[in-house]
């Protein structure tokens, strides 16, 4: 089965665990000179692609986002609000519900509600 061009721009990489090679000096039309055993089968696996740093805008946009760093930032901002080891939100909500439902007879629905939940 003939192979087509194995080179792909970095922004097509399926995830962060991909080795990106520098494009300089690479001729895209070079025949593949790697060990054929390394290339693997021609299935839909990404493994036989090689990735290069694209200098076009799509490559620049791709590299402009450091998802790890941005996500750490976002987490840090959220954590700023102060998280205690044990959340009290659910306790407060429960207290609120009990207060609000004080005048409502609901205990006799208990079994029925359980059935619905376990359905």
């Amino acid at each position: 089965m003939p192979k087509y061009n194995p080179w792909r721009p970095d922004f097509e990489a399926p995830g962060p665990h991909v080795k990106v090679e520098n494009k300089d000096g690479i001729n895209f039309e070079d025949p593949d000179d790697r060990d054929p055993d390394e290339i693997g089968d021609d299935d839909d696996d990404f493994s036989h692609y090689r990735y290069y740093t694209s200098n076009k805008i799509l490559g620049k946009l791709y590299r402009a986002i450091d998802e790890r760093k941005i996500f750490e930032d976002i987490k840090r901002r959220a954590a700023h609000q102060g998280v205690t080891s044990r959340s009290t939100v659910i306790d407060d909500v429960w207290a609120y519900i009990q207060r609000t439902c004080k005048l409502i007879q609901w205990e006799h629905h208990w079994e029925w509600a359980k059935d619905i939940r376990d359905m």
Binding site: I74, A78, Q81, G82, V83, T84, S87, T88, V89, V93
Partner: peptide, 17 residues
């Protein structure tokens, strides 16, 4: 509105993140 910060609850915060 009840003055409870959802971010103090680990699960709710994880969903948003």
């Amino acid at each position: 509105m009840m003055n409870l910060d959802f971010r103090k609850d680990g699960f709710l915060r994880d969903v948003l993140e």
